[in-house]
Amino acid sequence: MSKAFLIDLTKCMGCRACQVACKRWNNLEAEHTSMTSDSWTNPFRLSARTWTRVDFTELQSPQYKAGMKWVFARRQCMHCLHPACVSACPVGAFRKTDEGPVVYDAQKCIGCRYCMVSCPFGVPGFEWDKGLLAQPLIKKCKMCVDRLGAGMEPACVKHCPPRATIFGERDELLATAKERIAANPDTYINHIYGENEVGGTSMLYLSSVPFEQIGFPKLGSEAVTVNTEAVMEKTLPFAAAWTVILAATYGVVKFRERTNPQGEEKNQ
């Protein structure tokens, strides 16, 4: 069975305990940060040292009390069901496990960063400040796969005070999400982000506001890997056919030259 998260943004209070728990469990260094934007979000984005982060969005509308409303949305790897990184990696360093986490084999990676280009959520981070001897790698949330093996919940889930993030089987969490929407149709919008996005993700989100308003990419339900994988399937047959066509063309041209030695007049 496949494990997943249900992240209920209406319960999140923006405490960033998940950010801290993630750093502590995974021994991630602190980042130099600065308050540069008009939001409280910090650091600037996910990176090799920050695998989860709470986005702070300040929404303004007369319908809200005091004319504004905070929405807190923690972001991390979505652990897609059809992950772009797994499909894109030339050496197969990424793998979608049966248990749910998308994991990375640091021993294989060549550092081409195509995973970063292809990820629809812009998740993987690269260690830009490491030279050849320090051996830079790609880093991202691994759903605490090392804790799961020991029967523990992921660190961020364990440390979420209001239980805004819960952990479990994906289909059960989907059912829970639908129950919550049905029970409180005024609180939630009727959209479980991650249920169908890019073919489904292991991270499921509930929200009180449309996801576009809080910076979630608007994505279709088709996996982003379909086009590239379709092309790759056709590559070898195409190469074989093209070889035959070229060889045949050569044969025809040679044959004509032999039967018609006056072929000098040919123009392009």
Binding site: V91, G92, C109, I110, G111, M232
Partner: peptide
């Protein structure tokens, strides 16, 4: 540009035929 140029030979031993980058390499 490659993060780990010393591992470029990995393209020869670790295959991912779904990857366009595999074909490019």
């Amino acid at each position: 540009d490659l993060g780990r140029p010393e591992r470029i030979w990995h393209l020869i031993i670790y295959w991912n035929p779904h990857s366009v980058m595999f074909e490019v390499g």
